[in-house]
Nucleic acid binder design. Structure first.
Lengths: 230, 230
DNA sequence: CTAACTAAACTGACCAGTCAGTTCAAATAG
DNA sequence: CTATTTGAACTGACTGGTCAGTTTAGTTAG
């Protein structure tokens, strides 16, 4: 294990972006380069030398900024999930107050409520856009997510829970307004939608580039329409 | 490239199982061992030595029976897909006539017709059983399927098409009997169901072992219920 | 001034693929 | 029935190369 990088690096004093601009730029370049390479050939199939070269940085810099290859990948996963979470939250379906905020159910007088199904559709659309923009992240996710045991088991458990919580909240909103099939387990439903987003997005990228964003969204939304009882 | 094994090995004269029993047993052991290991740690993360040791066979035997590590994995994929196809076809939803026929509603002249939705449900159930029985195969599939470029690109394209054809036929049967939402692209729908089977099955295995087979099937079936118009 | 970074050499482990040699069951010969 | 041969199946030490991670002495930029 490397101890030098971890020790010398300024302790990131619990605050946010107090890092020098140069470091942030370097880390960003490393994220982009490794996202691309690892998405294409897998975590084990890419060397640290390659990542450094692709980022236009020396190998030592990788170890200066990250303690190890595994550490770089763990932070890469967190980075990607933060982006995805921001996209999903932007539709206002999440738990925290997003853009198109929805007040309580009983007429609280402050504006019209958006249809939760439409919000869901918007969220799935955001997910599809994310998959199209960061296909390498999606590939990394599905490649490593179900590995057991894996170096990133704990990382995945945390990140997965964060994402499922957002989807769960959106489903909750639908269930609060529409009559739904209560025999369908909420957890399984979240998983099915979550997984369908990744798989449909990746499949479009890899095998069916001619399929439109809307076709993909519609296919996934069939799950929700089947959840709402007739 | 290894030439010896390929040349010396009897030319497998287009027939079926003319292979000596020893070889078949060895190949079977190698399939099982490599399925397990590769599913856990990924194709690049497993060494040929490990596979040989796990199969209780020497490394040379691997190269005698398969030309290379990549070749072994390609044949492993084919092996797994053949098993899955057999399971799916057993529900009678495929192109060929299968076993468990379900008495249906519109009585046609030639015996009872199965309800295509029930057949679909049976098929998804078979898929879930397969994922539970061969989780390592599922992991291998999702790990390597969307890699581009990959050593098994062509293999995946062929196998994927074979599986999607079976799902497509099942959807076709439903659309022939029920009114469906024609605005939903058939291809995207196939992909969504296909992907959901893998992801829900794997997620159950990895994160939610307490979820039942039926819960999983029900969640995936929501897609079909949403496809059938109300 | 110092944190961030560079460049290049180095270590030690690991690994895909090779190949000369061994085993043994079945075929053939005596 | 026994001896000999054959060759497919298998063995495992070995080779050439790769790679994660380390180290060091110096350079750059804020």
């Amino acid at each position: 294990m490397n101890t030098r990088g971890m020790n010398i690096r300024p302790a990131e004093p619990a605050g946010k972006e107090l890092r020098p601009a140069r470091t942030n730029a370097t880390r960003q370049k490393l994220f982009e380069a490794s996202m691309e390479l690892i998405g294409e050939r897998g975590a084990a199939g890419v060397t640290v030398d390659e990542i450094a070269a692709a980022a236009g940085v020396s190998k030592g810099t990788v170890y200066y900024n990250f303690g190890s290859k595994a550490d770089l990948i763990a932070q890469l996963l967190r980075h990607g999930v933060d982006i995805l979470k921001a996209r999903l939250a932007s539709t206002g379906t999440g738990t925290s107050a997003g853009a198109g905020m929805v007040p309580g159910e009983a007429a609280s007088g402050s504006g019209p409520r958006p249809d939760p199904l439409l919000a869901m559709e918007a969220m799935i659309g955001q997910a599809m856009d994310f998959m199209a923009e960061y296909p390498s992240f999606a590939r990394l996710w599905v490649s490593e997510n179900w590995r057991t045991p894996s170096e990133w088991q704990d990382t995945f458990a945390v990140l997965r829970a964060e994402l499922l919580e957002i989807i769960g909240a959106a489903i909750e909103s639908v269930a609060a307004v529409y009559p739904v099939d209560e025999t369908i387990s909420r957890g399984s439903l979240e998983t099915a939608i979550f997984g369908a987003c990744f798989v449909v997005g990746l499949d479009r990228q890899t095998y069916n580039p001619e399929r439109t964003r809307n076709q993909s969204v519609a296919a996934i939304m069939a799950i929700m329409r089947g959840y709402v009882v007739k």
